[in-house]
Computed example of a mutant assay.
Amino acid sequence: MSLSPDTLHPSLAPNFLRERLMAAGLRATQQRLLILECLLVLPGHPTAEQVHRQAVEQAPSLSLGTVYKTLDSFVAAGLTKRVASAEGSSRRYDADCTEHHHLFCTNTQEIIDYCDPQLDALIRDFFAAKGLSDFQPHSFSLHITGNKVLKD
């Protein structure tokens, strides 16, 4: 498997990928670099299968199991998040680890990122008012299921 600057997506410099892996405490192997690149360039919240299909174009011998293990190591290191799909049958991955919520469209199976500081404040205030003595939330992600409304 060859991962040269020529094979990387133009918007991703090799040092950027390497630095992200190293900041997460992971060695920057060629497989990890390739899988991270694929995760970052694929639209939306890709499945491991989608990452694998993209990656095998550059590394035909890369197994789906290796992609799953690598993505799981990314999750454990805080480099990505695992997101349940709207239908619940497949794991999806989100390279955006900032606080945000997800809207699940049951018609398209699309997962849409949603940020709203006012909603975040409401949720924090709600838990602060409840005074849960045996639980202290440090982060949260709201998952809302619905349908996109098409406008005429």
Results as ranks from 00 to 15, higher is better:
residue 60 P to D: 13
residue 61 S to G: 12
residue 62 L to W: 01
residue 62 L to S: 04
residue 63 S to G: 07
residue 66 T to D: 06
residue 69 K to F: 02
residue 70 T to S: 08
residue 70 T to R: 03
residue 71 L to R: 03
residue 71 L to A: 00
residue 71 L to H: 00
residue 71 L to N: 05
residue 71 L to I: 08
residue 71 L to K: 03
residue 74 F to V: 02
residue 74 F to G: 04
residue 74 F to D: 05
residue 74 F to T: 03
residue 75 V to W: 02
residue 75 V to R: 09
residue 76 A to K: 15
residue 78 G to E: 10
residue 79 L to W: 01
residue 79 L to H: 00
residue 82 R to T: 09
residue 84 A to S: 13
residue 85 S to I: 02
residue 87 E to F: 08
residue 91 R to T: 05
residue 91 R to D: 05
residue 93 Y to C: 00
residue 94 D to T: 03
residue 94 D to V: 03
residue 97 C to N: 09
residue 97 C to Q: 11
residue 97 C to G: 12
residue 99 E to L: 14
residue 104 F to M: 08
residue 105 C to A: 10
residue 105 C to F: 04
residue 106 T to R: 13
residue 108 T to P: 04
residue 108 T to M: 01
residue 109 Q to K: 12
residue 111 I to N: 04
residue 111 I to R: 06
residue 112 I to M: 10
residue 113 D to T: 13
residue 113 D to P: 14
residue 114 Y to C: 02
residue 114 Y to E: 00
residue 116 D to G: 07
residue 117 P to Y: 01
residue 117 P to W: 00
residue 117 P to L: 01
residue 117 P to F: 02
residue 117 P to C: 00
residue 121 A to G: 06
residue 122 L to Q: 13
residue 123 I to S: 02
residue 125 D to N: 10
residue 126 F to T: 13
residue 126 F to A: 13
residue 127 F to G: 00
residue 128 A to E: 14
residue 130 K to F: 05
residue 130 K to L: 15
residue 131 G to S: 01
residue 132 L to Y: 03
residue 132 L to P: 04
residue 137 P to L: 11
residue 138 H to T: 15
residue 141 S to N: 12
residue 143 H to C: 11
residue 144 I to F: 05
residue 145 T to W: 09
